[in-house]
Amino acid sequence: MILVIDFALLLFMIICALAAITVKDLLHATIILAAYSLIMTVLWAEMNAVDVAFTEATVGAGITTVLFVAAIARTRRRSGD
């Protein structure tokens, strides 16, 4: 059962990672990256790496999202390439 959940989470994570680098709107990419970070947190916690999971949740989903949103607010929202 836990293996099924693992594969589902890994699949979602790969989908999120691919979507974050292909989407043109940078604000959408930031939010997708936050979702990727959240799935990664669950995976770290499931692998008994609670410390890494905690750091991923605080820094990955919290601080970097706010930093990216602030950086987008100061530059342009559309991707150049």
Partner: peptide, 15 residues
């Protein structure tokens, strides 16, 4: 004694 530490606590405080 458990999960967490100075870095994580500081980041949560900044959050």
């Amino acid at each position: 004694s458990g999960a967490g530490g100075g870095f994580q606590g500081g980041v949560v405080f900044a959050a």
